[in-house]
């Protein structure tokens, strides 16, 4: 996380004080490469489909609830922000990264506007931080709901934390939720901003 924040900070500082010859297509090429390699990573996970099959029904319901809850409340966020700044569609799109800050930030910058892309990046970074802080506390009262905060990041960065504080079945559901949310983030963003 520190490395990623440093990359953004270095970029901001360099952009502020220097002008680099950056071709327009480079962002698109890198974005496609990122999505390709993430797909490769998910696909090559040992026994991933068997793991998911075991808890499939719960994984699907959990993922659907996480996605719909995020989108509905993400849309409601526009009511708390001055209305001239962002529409409901824009706040919903910014929330739709579900913790995958690198992809959502870049995709929204490319598809909609750099301002909303930066807001989405920061919002999803905050969501991942919230998950790190809240999962250990909330998993005692409501394991599945605590896992929902992780969104798409539940399959990677947060998985160790989730397994430490939950039963194996909850960890598997969290992993499945992360996979499905990760699969859905590019699709949802394309539907919202495409």
């Amino acid at each position: 996380m520190i490395l990623m924040l440093s990359a953004v900070t270095c970029g901001i500082l360099l952009g502020r004080f220097f002008t680099l010859p950056v071709p327009d297509f480079i962002l698109t090429v890198l974005l496609m490469a990122l999505v390709f390699f993430v797909g490769l990573e998910i696909g090559s996970e040992e026994g991933i489909f068997k793991k998911i099959k075991k808890e499939l029904a719960l994984i699907l319901i959990q993922s659907a609830l996480v996605i719909s809850g995020t989108l509905v409340f993400g849309w409601l966020a526009c009511l708390l922000i001055p209305s001239s700044l962002f529409s409901g569609k824009e706040t919903m799109g910014a929330a739709a990264g579900m913790g995958w800050y690198s992809l959502s930030g870049v995709m929204i910058s490319e598809m909609h506007s750099p301002l909303l892309g930066t807001v989405s990046f920061t919002a999803n970074l905050i969501r991942e931080t919230l998950a790190i802080l809240l999962i250990p506390v909330l998993s005692r009262f409501s394991p599945l709901a605590s896992v929902s905060i992780g969104g798409a990041a539940a399959m990677d960065v947060l998985l160790g934390l989730i397994s430490k504080h939950n039963r194996l079945s909850v960890t598997l559901i969290a992993f499945g939720q992360g996979v499905i949310c990760s699969l859905m983030v590019p699709v949802i963003l394309t539907i919202i901003f495409g």
Binding site: L3, A7, V8, G15, L20, V22, L27, L30, G117, T118
Partner: peptide, 12 residues
């Protein structure tokens, strides 16, 4: 990292 750097650069 490269994407985030470029995103930051565009913002800056």
């Amino acid at each position: 990292l490269m994407l985030l750097f470029l995103m930051g650069y565009e913002t800056g």
